[in-house]
Simulated scan of single mutants.
Amino acid sequence: MGTALRIDQLRKAYGATTAVDGLDLHVDEGQIVGILGPNGSGKTTTVECAYGLRKADSGTIRVFGVDSRAEPDRVARLVGTQLQDSALPDRIKVWEAVHLFAALAHRPVDEAEALHRWGLTGKRNASFASLSGGQRQRLLVALALVGKPRLVFLDEMTTGLDPQARREVWDLVAEVRGGGTTVVLVTHFMDEAQRLCDRVVVLSRGRKIAEGTPADLIDRCGGGTVARFPVPAQGRLPGLEGLPGVRTVARVDGRVEVRGQGPFLVALGHALTLAGQPGVRLDVTSPSLEDAYVRLIGEQETP
C-alpha cells in the first residue's frame, strides 16, 4: 500500500495567528482518514494547503509522491475537493454544474450516472439557489468526485443533511473508497468519523494531539466501559477493585459504578454471582469516539 498524502512540518500563519504549527500527516492509499478538532484548530487550513488552495509558509506536501509546490497542475489532476465554503452561482442548473466540472476533468465520470448516484436526477434542471441545504451538499460532493480523483478532500460534507440523508451519503463515501479513492474527511460529527474512518487525527490549536483508529482512541481516551448497578439491599458486596480489567469502583447516587476495559464485565458478573447477587441488572455504557474527543480537547484547554 502506497502513501496517498504525506505532509511534513506544515506551518501556516495569518498575521500573528498561527493556524497550523508543525503538522505531520500521512494518509495511506485506500484509507478514509478523518481530521477532527474544534473551530480554529487548523483543520480547513490543512486541507486547503494540501489541495493547493493556500500556500504553506513552510513544510512539504506530497500527493502520491508529487510535490504540490513544484507540480501543482499535476496534483490538481489527482485530487478532488468539497470545501466547507464551496458555492456555485445561484442561477446555474444542477446538470450544467456537473457538465462544466466534467468538461474540465481529466477523466470524468458519466454525468447521468453521477446525478443518479447522488440522488439529483429529479433536480437536474433546478437552479443551485433553489436547492435545499442537503441537496446543495450532495451536489458539491458529486462535483468533487466527477473527475474520478485518486484522493478526495471532503470538508463538513453532511452539514445540513437530515439523519436519513447523512446515512445515505456515508454509504456512498464508503462505496467511493471501495472503488479505490482515498478520502480525507474533515468533520465535526463524531458518529460520522467513528462509522467511516480507518484512522482519525485530532487537532488543537494547529497541532496534532492524537492519532489512531477510532477504536484505539476510544480505548486510550474514552474512559472505558461503565457498568452500573444498585447497591444491594442485603448480602455482601465483593471487593471489585482487584478484578481483571477494572479501573475504578465508586458509589454514586445509591448505585455502584464500575469502570473498566477488556474482560471486566465477565469477571464482574462472575463475582456478583459468587456473592449471592446473580439477579443484579447491569446498566452498561460503552464509550464512543465523542467521549474520547471531548476528553482530549478538554485536557488541552485545561490550564
Rank of each mutant, 00 (worst) to 15 (best):
S288Q: 10
G40H: 09
D291M: 07
P230F: 11
G245E: 05
G222A: 04
Y293H: 06
D8M: 07
L115R: 00
A215M: 11
D85W: 11
A13H: 13
T273A: 15
D191G: 11
A87N: 14
L268P: 00
R220P: 08
Y51F: 13
T248F: 03
R6Y: 04
I61N: 00
I218P: 00
C221N: 13
A56Y: 07
T302L: 10
G119D: 04
R77K: 12
G15K: 09
R236G: 15
A144I: 02
A87S: 15
I35N: 00
L154C: 08
L139G: 01
L243I: 12
P89Y: 09
L289W: 01
G235N: 05
H26L: 14
L151S: 07
L25Q: 05
A267P: 05
P108G: 10
L240S: 04
A174F: 04
Q300I: 11
D162P: 04
A16Q: 15
L78V: 07
R255N: 12
L78C: 11
V109I: 12
G80H: 03
R62Y: 05
A267Y: 02
G34S: 05
T158L: 02
P214T: 09
A56C: 11
R205Q: 15
L185Y: 04
V201E: 02
V246W: 00
E257M: 13
L23Y: 08
G59M: 09
P149Y: 04
D110H: 12
R124E: 00
G260N: 01
P230D: 13
G276Q: 09
R138N: 01
A70M: 09
F128S: 00
V231C: 11
P244I: 07
E299C: 05
E175R: 10
Q31G: 04
L203I: 02
G30N: 08
T17A: 15
R74I: 06
L274C: 10
R281C: 11
T3Y: 08
V252S: 06
F264P: 03
R247F: 03
F153T: 00
D110I: 09
L131P: 05
T285A: 13
A4E: 00
I32G: 04
L151T: 02
S130D: 09
S286I: 11
A144W: 02
E113P: 08
